[in-house]
Amino acid sequence: MADVDDGMRGLVDMDRLRQRFDNDDELLGEIFRVFQTETPGRRAGFEQALAAGDMNAVTHLAHSLKGVAATMFAEPLRQVAYDLEMAGRAGDTAAVSRLAAVLLRRLEATNQYVAGLF
């Protein structure tokens, strides 16, 4: 495993992830490659939904990302995706706007973190 910035270590709980997947580095590498491949599309989807004011799409995208983040034990990303999903369901446009900015930053940070792992 490559060295990564200590400030980014909390983005993914590698101990729990390794335990869940029986220390299978090949499988973890594949999971991270898929995440990296899907990240630009997820970002674009959020940006388009936000620009269109499409709360249903924002809610759906946040829900989907929440599941991906949970699978990867990426708790900071999972938590903001959950918060954004709930704000979208409530129709709270101010919270959606604020949380979407946080989510996009965490999505990028998580993507950069996993890029440095394998």
Rank of each mutant, 00 (worst) to 15 (best):
A87S: 09
K66G: 00
A74S: 12
M86Y: 15
L61A: 06
A81Q: 12
F73W: 01
A57H: 01
F73Q: 03
E85G: 02
A62T: 06
H60R: 15
V80K: 08
R89Q: 12
P76M: 09
M72Q: 02
N56K: 14
L61M: 05
R78K: 15
A74W: 08
S64M: 09
D83K: 14
K66T: 12
E85I: 00
P76L: 14
A74P: 02
T71K: 05
A90C: 06
A90T: 07
P76C: 13
A70V: 08
N56G: 10
S64W: 03
L65D: 10
P76F: 08
G88W: 09
S64R: 02
V68E: 07
A57S: 10
M86G: 12
Q79N: 08
E75D: 09
M55C: 00
L77N: 01
M86A: 15
G67F: 07
A57P: 10
V58A: 10
A87H: 13
R78V: 15
L65Y: 10
G67I: 08
A57L: 01
A70H: 09
M86N: 15
M72H: 04
R89C: 08
K66N: 02
D83Y: 07
Y82R: 13
A74F: 01
Y82T: 14
R89F: 02
M55V: 14
G88F: 01
R89D: 04
V58Q: 10
F73Y: 11
D83H: 13
V58R: 06
V80G: 06
P76V: 04
L65Q: 00
F73H: 11
S64C: 05
R89N: 13
H60Y: 11
H60L: 11
A81M: 13
H60F: 05
R89A: 10
Y82E: 14
H60A: 15
T59S: 00
L61T: 13
G67K: 04
P76S: 12
T71H: 07
A57R: 06
E75C: 07
L77K: 10
V58M: 02
A70G: 15
E75H: 10
A62D: 03
S64H: 08
H60T: 14
T59G: 12
Y82C: 13
R78F: 03
G88E: 08
L84Q: 06
M72V: 11
K66Q: 09
A69E: 11
L77C: 01
Y82M: 15
M72T: 13
T59C: 00
P76I: 12
M86D: 15
A87L: 01
G88T: 06
H63I: 11
A57I: 01
G67R: 10
M86T: 14
Y82A: 15
S64D: 04
M55Y: 06
A90Y: 02
R89W: 01
A87K: 07
